Every structure is written in C-alpha cells, then in structure tokens.
Simulated assay, not measured.
Amino acid sequence: MTESVNFERGEMSTNNIASPLISVVIPAYNYAASLARAAQSILGQRDERTELLIVDDGSTDATSEVVKALHLGYPGQFRSIRKDNGGAASARNLGLRESAGDWLVFLDADDEFVPGALGKLAEHIQSNPDSRLVIGEHISVSEEGHRRRHKNDPIPDRGFERVKAYLLDKTLGLSNGACAMHREVFEQGGYPEHFRNSEDLPVFAQALARYPVSTLAEPLLLLYKHGDSLRHHVGHGQAVGTQVVDEVFSRLPAEMQSLRDDFYAQRCLSLFRSAYLAKDREAAKKYYSAALRNNWRLLLKASYTRKAIRLWLGKR
C-alpha cells in the first residue's frame, strides 16, 4: 500500500526546541471518544524536553475533528499527521520517523499519562545516561473505575534472563505508555507492519535482549481496560498466528534461540485459549494440537487440559 501522509498547515512547530529529549507519539484509529483525554494528559505537563506527535491512522470517526479542536486549544504545542489506514505498527513507525526526540514513548489513544510522570521520566533518563529502555509502572483502570497499581519486579541483569522473564515466565511485563525506548533500540527493526496484533512483542524483546535497561518506581500510565480494545481483538490475533515467533527470534542473538520452542508452544496455547473463548472449535483444536506436538508437558497445565477435554467432547 502506498502511504499517504498529510501534515496539516501550521502544525509543524517543534515546540520551539531544536532537539527534544522525549517524543510522545499517540497513534489513533477511531478513538475520537478518548483521544483528547490522552493528548491533554501530555499537553498539560510537557516542557521544553518533550514533544507530542499525534498520528491519525486513517480514522473514519470524528478523530480528525478532535485533532483540529486540540490544535485550536493548544496552538503550536504539538504536531499531527493523518495517513492512510495501515494499522498501529505503521502509525508507530511513522511516528518514529517523524519525531525528533532521542527517546520514544508510544501512548495508546485510549490511555493517559499520570500527572507529573513526564517530568519524572525525563529526570530518570538524564540520571541514567547508559539506559536504552526505561520500564515504569502503570495503574490499570477497570470499566467500573477500579484502580490497581502494577509495580515492577526486579529486572534481571542478563539479556537472556530478561527475555525469558518476558516471553516465557511472564514475570516481566511491558506496556506502551509505561515504558520509554531510545532510538538505538529500533536499529534492530521497527514494528512489523504486516501484523495487526502482537506487533509490540518483537520490539520489546529486542530491547530487553540487546540494550541496558533501567526501572522507574513510579506509575507513568493509566491503562484503561475495556472489552472492545483492539489489543484484545481475537480476529487480529488469529491472523498473526504463530508468525510472531519467527519475527521475534529473527531479532534475537544466537544464544537466545534455545527459548524458541517453548515460546512457540506458549504462543499456540494463547491462540488456543482465544479461539476457545471465541467458540472457534477448529482453530482451538489446531492450536492445542500444535502446542502438544511441540511440548507434551503442556498436558500438566490443568486449566488448558480441562478446556481441551471439553472441546474434544463437544461440550464447548
């Protein structure tokens, strides 16, 4: 697809700074209802060290009108781009190319930054010049408004252990908006634009594997949970399937390839679960069988085994 990009007139101000430290990029596709909240959470606290760039990924709702209203309310305080729809990965990659900061924060349009967190992040980066990935904390907000703070566990020193903790053990979590990545991280590759789901996994994995990591014991993000969020879209997950395994491990060093088989099996189990919940029996059977062929010990995972038994007995 040929990419069509539109920088609206008068919106190319770089906040009167030659080179910001942090660029916050908000990719937006049909999030008119929440985009202003996300953008204002940055505009209300940004200073000369930061810039904001909104990338409208060909929205068909009122997103473009929200962006125009934001420009009227905050003249010269941020930039915006409108492009043909290509998915979150393409919007993030465009934001990466068009932003000026050494550090990138990708904030989803349905979330928001915690007040005062941007300054704390900038101070942490300046105090940790060797770091290339900063992992902050986040606060999840349920549909009922309940809040829960998610604190960081200790981060392993070795890249191998960090990748294992992230991909397999699930003891290390990363969320867009709750972490910042230096531009050097993307020398290993940007977001895979042929994915409409799980596009973060290869980028987060390469950052953990190859670069110095630091943690910030402060919540950066309010992460809103809702059922229609694209991050939970079953159809996109099924479309990506196990391709993400090849993508992730094509970016990792040779000494980490030993983790591949276990990650493949785990990915199959995840796809099995999503297909099971979506009542797609054939897809669920396919992924569970693939997981077992890769690692028979998965039979010991009782929760998955119970679902599989119900599936083959025709009870689901």
Rank of each mutant, 00 (worst) to 15 (best):
L72F: 10
N85Y: 14
S90P: 04
K83S: 11
A88V: 13
D84F: 04
S64L: 05
L72Q: 15
A88P: 01
D57V: 07
T63K: 08
G58L: 01
A62P: 03
G86Y: 11
Y74G: 08
S90Q: 15
I81C: 09
L72T: 12
K83C: 12
A89Q: 03
S80L: 07
G87C: 14
A69G: 14
D57Q: 05
P75G: 04
A62I: 07
D84A: 12
Q77N: 12
T63N: 09
H71I: 04
S59H: 03
G86A: 14
S59C: 07
Q77K: 15
G87K: 14
D84R: 10
A62V: 09
I81K: 06
H71M: 02
G86P: 09
T63Y: 09
D61P: 04
P75R: 07
G87S: 14
H71N: 06
T60K: 11
G76R: 05
A89I: 03
P75I: 01
D57T: 00
S64C: 03
A62G: 12
S64D: 11
L72M: 10
A89D: 01
S64P: 05
G76I: 08
A88G: 02
G73F: 02
K83D: 07
D57G: 00
R82C: 07
L72I: 08
S80E: 09
S80F: 06
Y74H: 15
A91G: 05
F78I: 02
G86W: 11
K68A: 14
Q77E: 15
G86D: 08
V67R: 01
H71L: 03
Y74D: 08
D84G: 15
G87N: 11
A88R: 09
I81S: 04
V66S: 01
A62L: 13
S90E: 13
G87M: 11
I81W: 07
A89G: 07
D57L: 01
R79L: 01
V66E: 02
T63H: 10
G73H: 12
